[in-house]
Nucleic acid binder design. Structure first.
Length: 411
DNA sequence: CCTCCACAGGAAGCGCAGGAGT
DNA sequence: ACTCCTGCGCTTCCTGTGGAGG
């Protein structure tokens, strides 16, 4: 009668979740376990703003999921509240350069945060910049501009925007803007113009990865907010922590696992999240990642991957660059396409390795040369399914699939 | 000890698409 | 409407290298 009624009823009254949103990546919790020291240091750097003085510029780096963004946001919200209380005008502006990846958009966001009216288009970056400087000059507010994932902006557009931003203050009689840069890549700072580097990096802060024990604390705290009491079996949190700790202590990964496991339990109408849900959540997350990686692969990348699958099928599970290249050429010929060079295939193989789809190590076979030995490191079925999405590959995927599964199953 | 295989992987540059500036 | 710029996929040319076989 009412096929959706059941779903809605269940969603309204979850036995698993109390508040699922608390597990989403952009939620900033009340407390950040094991980041107390970092938070104190950030606060110490930014605190002079409460006296109306310009804080030092701050540069923060650490791997993904180490709490950089959360820590900064946490401090800023407290800072703004405290400033308000004491009648100081402090305004934080947060820009994520991964999504606002042109100088124009970054400047537009900053301008908007400062209350400058910025049309979506039509102005030169120089003009917006001028407006920002003017605004900063005749406002009594102190601005703290956070540039999250700055490496994206610099990688794609060079560092002259950063240079300009660090120069805002020198164009003003009194300094009114401080910068907080955040990045995942450690070697990023070295690639900067020395002038930008010294200015942006007045104070530097490193966020180390979490270990399994720390992840456990984080998850426990978050789970208490997100899940119904008793919705988790005891082993769930330690398991999520251990799995994420293996992936360079990525807290975001750990929270994802927990959330997806919860969603699975809920979809099944279960009452508790069990160990098995976590294991399946991990597979699902991994599958999604693989599908996404493959979807964005260029055509010849897919063909090379298909060749790897084909040459590693059956009894032997590894092959070499040369073998893959031969197979790749024959697959390509079947589609009447041009082939790329060995050099490129070698490069593609290195990329696939970095993406975690295959793994290879370089070995020497002495008299018989030196090569990279390759094997698949992602789930075969997931790879094939993702590849079959590309219609340009036509029948080839089906064929390789039969080849791979046939030999394996037939043995 | 030297050679030489079968590649690895750096450097430079090309053609193209798409987006921005003018 | 036009040029300029940038990133990407790719090629060309290159130098480098661990160790089995001579």
């Amino acid at each position: 009668m009412d096929p959706l009624g059941d779903i809605f009823k269940r969603a309204l009254k979850s036995r698993i979740f109390k508040n699922r949103e608390k597990l989403l990546p952009d939620y900033v919790p009340e407390a950040l376990p094991h980041r107390e020291e970092e938070i104190r240091r950030i606060a110490a750097v930014l605190a002079p703003s409460l006296r109306g003085e310009k804080p030092s510029n701050l540069f923060i780096y650490g791997l993904t999921g180490t709490g950089k963004t959360a820590a900064v946001r946490y401090v800023l919200s407290r800072l703004e509240a405290s400033a308000k209380e004491h009648g100081q005008r402090v305004k934080a502006i947060y820009v994520n350069a991964r999504y606002r990846d042109t100088p124009y958009r970054v400047l537009a966001d900053i301008g908007e945060g400062m209350g400058v009216s910025v049309p979506f288009t039509g102005l030169s970056t120089g003009e917006i910049f001028g407006r920002i400087v003017r605004r900063a000059a005749d406002s009594s507010t102190l601005y703290i501009v956070v540039l999250d994932e700055v490496d994206f902006l610099v990688k794609r557009r060079g560092d002259d925007v950063l240079y300009k931003l660090t120069r805002i203050n020198s164009e003003l009689k009194s300094s009114r803007v401080s910068l907080v840069g955040i990045t995942n890549s450690v070697d990023f700072i070295e690639s900067l113009d020395p002038r930008v580097k010294s200015s942006l990096g007045e104070v530097e802060l490193v966020f180390p990865p979490y270990n399994a024990e720390q992840l456990r604390d984080i998850l426990s705290a978050r789970a208490a907010e997100a899940f119904q009491p008793n919705a988790l079996e005891d082993e769930v949190i330690p398991l999520c922590s251990a799995l994420a700790a293996r992936e360079h202590g990525d807290a975001r990964r750990a929270l994802d696992l927990l959330r997806v496991a919860g969603e699975m339990a809920e979809r099944e109408g279960g009452e508790r999240v069990r160990r098995e849900h976590v294991m399946r959540a991990r597979e699902e997350i991994e599958r999604d990642r693989v599908v996404e990686v493959i979807r964005t692969l260029p055509l010849h990348g897919k063909l090379v991957l298909l060749a790897v699958i084909s040459t590693t099928a059956g009894g032997r599970s590894h092959s070499t660059t040369g073998e893959v290249y031969e197979k790749y050429k024959s697959l390509t010929r079947r589609l009447s396409l041009e082939t790329v060079t060995l050099r490129r295939v070698s490069g593609i193989l290195a990329e696939l390795d970095m993406l975690g789809v295959i793994s290879g190590r370089v070995i020497s076979k002495g008299r018989y040369g030196k090569t990279r030995v390759l094997e698949l490191s992602a789930d075969l079925a997931a790879l094939l399914r993702a590849l079959s999405e590309d219609i340009a590959l036509g029948e080839l995927v089906e064929e390789v699939k039969r080849e791979a599964l046939g030999k394996r199953g037939g043995m």
